[in-house]
Design a protein around this nucleic acid. Structure first.
Lengths: 151, 151
DNA sequence: ATCGATTGATCGATGGCGTCCATAATTTCC
DNA sequence: GGAAATTATGGACGCCATCGATCAATCGAT
């Protein structure tokens, strides 16, 4: 994991459709060296995979929401059934068990308020064992997630 | 945007390294049709790009944090200088202006508590105009973000 | 029935990917 | 310090996937 590897990771995070030749020029290495480094970064597990980045706006997902959820009970059973239910809903993009006020933080995407209301009724309100729920909508994205810092 | 396009988007979100032939088989279309559809999804803006998915654990980023921030003033100037400062820090992965209790929600990644403390001192505490800050750490990820729902 | 759009098959050309080998650099051991 | 061993590097080449184009067939709507 030297500077060139980090540079490769950074470049691949921002655009993985580049050819190895382009990449090699960017990071300042030969194509074969670059190729080998990529393969070893893959097999070492630094690169988990490759993915297309979709535009949520273009998909009509104009509403992003964060929901903090507190459970009535932190018993193992309550948590497990809550988590299982969460995983079953496609509209819940993300879910983390957290420290702090709430127990869980969810992240949702929806087309509009109307659909969010539907998600709320058909999904959030069906989650078991919830005692409190606090939603925040994203009004504007200041900084978009575009990969992890590489060091 | 029919069922096949949605299927292509889903497949490309989960793994964009597949060949067109593989993809065509998955979605049940011919290679040429699949190729055409991908190109048109790209030029229509549904696909914003392609990216390597890194493993944060493997990069040593074992700590994920959500930070809610309330500003002292919601004046235009205060918000602009806050947002500008946020964009300058690599450790802040994401930042959204939100409705609800707080004004902003940030998302951070760090190697460990020690580094988070450093980020806290050298980054969070330098953000201008902050009146309150509430951090939550992700203890465990229940559901990992792996792309948007397509339909 | 007709027109337009989409499909699937095929082909050719380009260019990227992966492998090879010889060389250079680094480490290891005496 | 020097030689051997191991590893990393860079250039070259063959194979294959991608890409754009073409064309007949099919589907769908008016």
């Amino acid at each position: 994991m030297d500077a060139i590897d980090q540079s490769i990771l950074r470049a691949l995070q921002s655009d993985s459709s580049r050819s190895i030749a382009e990449l090699a020029e960017i990071v300042g290495a030969s194509t074969s060296s670059c190729h080998r480094r990529i393969k070893s970064l893959e097999s070492a597990g630094f690169i988990a995979g490759y993915s297309a980045v979709l535009d949520p706006q273009r998909l009509g997902l104009k509403l992003h929401a964060f929901v903090e959820i507190t459970l009535e009970s932190q018993s193992r059973g309550a948590m497990e059934s809550f988590e299982k239910a969460v995983c079953g809903f496609d509209d819940i993009l993300e879910c983390h068990l957290t420290t702090g006020q709430a127990d869980y933080i969810l992240r949702l995407a929806a087309h509009d308020l109307e659909q969010f209301d539907r998600v709320h009724r058909e999904c959030l309100s069906l989650l078991p064992g919830v005692s409190a729920m606090r939603s925040s909508f994203a009004i504007r994205t200041i900084k978009q997630w575009r990969g992890y810092p590489t060091g």
